[in-house]
Amino acid sequence: MTREEALEARYRQLLWAYPKRYRRERGAEIVGTLMEAAHANQQRPTAREVTTLAVRGLQTRAGTHGAPSADRGLRGALRLAVLLLLAYATAGPLVDSGHIIPRIIADRAVLYPVELVQPLVTVVVACAVVAVAAGRYVWGLLATLSALAFTLAVLQLALSYDTVTHDVIFPPFELTRDMAAEEPATWLLAFAALLILPLIRRPVRHTRRPALWLLGVPVCAVLLPTHWNVTGELQPGTMLAVIAGFLMWVAVDARATVAAGLLLIPLILLALSLNGLDQATWLWTLLIGTGTLVTTGAVGLHRQAQL
């Protein structure tokens, strides 16, 4: 293989970041331009060429290389925020169901009937994820509100059901309210429902394979803090890594950076409702993270909208 052929082969490999269809249509032309621009004795692609091709390729995949208007970019950010919120809201009941179902199967008995609602909540929020990803925003809103209602029902019934005497005694409203405020899913689902409203009025383009968004659920369970403390030992490290990752992602898709900033808002509300001032470092981490992500993302959206 000659030096020129080897360099051309390396350039072809570098087009991996572009979608297959784009590579088919433009790949030969781009490689031709790269070869013309290469120095006489160049052996391998330069660092600048590698970085640019990777970032531009990923931008093409994300659909942000075509200067979407700032308004379209903002609605895209809202849609991504809703999907992240719902995926995160699914992660909680999924982990809980993972504790409940094996125990019921092993014991062949239900110790605590109310717990059976958790798998139902998981399925309903998962349906909301798929509905929003498919662009069915009204269905997404209905599923989100249903999941919120189920979550509140679980709380109310859990507080009113005596596991020893099997009596049902309804607790005072204040107790239910305080418990709901300490439940992450309450804030996540309520905020997601709020953000779906503008999308119903002015919808944005949907994903071709909406069910793939469900893969985000286990990722959220591992990387984000949960009420069930499954990743207790990983926090706040993974959370900071997520914030840093979304900050860097602004070079590819500023909508995702704004969406990640919005994802942290329910966590701030939760931290405040859990006497966040006692955990000032965590609260400040969330506040600074949200501010940085939203500001950086907004600047990125403005830049992406330029021709």
């Binding site: 621009a37 060429e49 970032v55 531009r56 931008q59 075509g66």
Partner: peptide
Amino acid sequence: MAAGTLYAALDRLTAEQL
């Protein structure tokens, strides 16, 4: 302009029919 940047610009400008 790097080649990647050029083709991103050409795509944007073509999409805007310029």
